[in-house]
Amino acid sequence: MIISVSHLSKQYEIYKKEAGFIGSLKSLVSRKYETVQAVDDVTFEISEGELVGFIGPNGAGKTTTLKCLSGLLYPTAGKIEVLGYTPFDRKYAYLKQIALVMGQKNQLWWDLPAQETFLLNKEIYEIPDDVYAYTLGQLVELLDVKHLLQVQVRKLSLGERMKMELIAALLHNPKVLFLDEPTIGLDVVMQKQMRDFVKNYNELQKSTILLTSHYMEDVRQLASRVIIIDHGKILYDGKLDNLVKKFASHKVLSVVLDSYVERNKFEEIGTVVSYEYPKVVIRVKRKDSNTAASSLLKKFPVDDLNIEEPDIEDVIRDVFTKK
């Protein structure tokens, strides 16, 4: 196993101030601290070359877990091993084999072209000249940024900067890559380019990638395995396809009608999600889907009918709201 996490917990203490001036005065005498359980008894393993999506709402503990794995945070309890190292020891031999890319953080020199940061990273990671030239050439080609290498970082668009961030992080060919919200704030075209790049990179380099994202499309396109985390606990760890089977309590019947039927007539079948004649979408209990489909065919002028799995985004939203 490349990554092994066992009973990981991380707590923070935060100071809670009472509102107003009296609250400020009270805080001089006594302060109330609250312990926040950011990650709670998390256990999982990731094999070499896997691309795993880490999903959860804001404050679920995704980034905290990623920070523990990359050695930024010291865990309160539990054991982590990445590439055989304990991340928080931050041994240089370990740091040379990983990379952490945070979508909201910038590591490039603002006033200089990105290539200056690349050269700095070459020295920091002690990358041999030939390896540097080859890797840079490959990354520049994959991301199509040759024309931007000599442009000041401050003059680049957000998407172009993100590409440069990725190059800076990948120059040393990390075996493990932690990507925290790599597509945040990017337009749809750039998001797709990023996804394609991550997918290609994973296939080419066989590197292990752990990805967090708020965009389900990122996870859907990239990760065959997902770990769902909420309130610091893992709710699901497995294949994306199985997630729907496990958590979706319903199916969706998409119907095309031959002739008009009043909307309320469908209520006896299930919940009408949308009705724009001739199309009607009905949500039914998973176990009743076949019966509901047969009733539809019997009772209504149906031209076409499909029984579909619900959208993965809806399933995940349901998982979080039920929690």
Binding site: K67, G71, L72, Y92, K105, I124
Partner: peptide, 9 residues
Amino acid sequence: LTKYLVQPF
């Protein structure tokens, strides 16, 4: 500081 903590330097 995050940037520096993940660098081998």
